[in-house]
Design a protein around this nucleic acid. Structure first.
Lengths: 148, 148
DNA sequence: GGCATAAACTTGAGCAGTCAAGGAGTCGGC
DNA sequence: GCCGACTCCTTGACTGCTCAAGTTTATGCC
């Protein structure tokens, strides 16, 4: 029944806000970044050479190009990311992780993993539950950190 | 492994933004409201007497009190919701669905259900999948439209 | 070469939410 | 009956995104 589908969708939305709040609190408190900042850095780190075109970053994060510009700005200011031009195409400005960016990210990653582990902690969550959730979410078009 | 937990969390966040965009487009196009507006109205409709204290509404929606104030304002302006004082306690201002609000909501509800049905359509999604997803999300603290 | 079209990015305006502070009202202790 | 502490709600300042418009550069066609 479509009522159930709507219920699922609404629950998903609700679950997300709770989850984001939790990550933001942890990451903000310990490292001074938001979850959005963290995911951005993480994507960058996963790219070959730890650099990406802003357009591709937007696509990967599910943001608009302008969202990326705005999100990157403060990270550039605090030196976690730099802007690199493309030799071939003067239109593109790569965003690249700096050495400090990389270092800081590994610290954040530890925090993020802890937080995630707390959220999905036993006994409520078994590894099988987690796998099922991931697989269901993947069908929804979400691209996680392990690829499509 | 905590990497899997983080992956699940990130996928959930990503899935939500896609989902919200889809609902916003449909609801906005047909009824001029956002998904946030719609959920607000829906909660109201489910409350006894189709009215709630703003504080409780905030709690139910996972927002702050000020978020509710701001979200309610435009809905009051367009006459879907009214503000009602409490006879006993002058601090509380109920938000109540108007007659038009109720009528408009049933139209929106149809659209929302359709949209949800499309998102969770067969053959990708079986009713069992949907039930599993809902049950997993519920553990995450999300309160759906069918109660805790 | 020169021009139209398109791509990558930035910028201004606006919207939806947050937090922190404050106004107004209630309630328990005395 | 009054004071202090608490609750409900709103407001101002800010953040993080969106969309629409504009700039700059590349590319294909002739």
């Amino acid at each position: 029944m479509s009522e159930d589908a709507l219920d699922a969708a609404l629950r998903l939305v609700r679950a997300q806000t709770a989850l984001v709040r939790r990550f933001d609190a942890r990451l903000g408190g310990l490292h001074g970044v938001s979850l959005a900042d963290f995911t951005l850095l993480l994507r960058l780190a996963q790219a070959p050479g730890a650099r990406m075109r802003r357009v591709d970053l937007a696509e990967a994060l599910g943001l608009t190009a302008s969202g990326v510009t705005r999100g990157l700005a403060p990270l550039e200011r605090i030196g976690l990311v730099t802007r690199e031009p493309d030799a071939r195409d003067a239109r593109v400005a790569y965003a690249a992780l700096t050495r400090t960016g990389r270092r800081r990210l590994t610290e954040m990653l530890a925090t993020a993993r802890e937080t995630a582990a707390e959220i999905f902690a036993a006994p409520d969550w078994s590894p099988a539950d987690l796998a099922r959730l991931t697989s269901l979410l993947t069908r929804l078009g979400g691209t996680g950190l392990k690829g499509a």
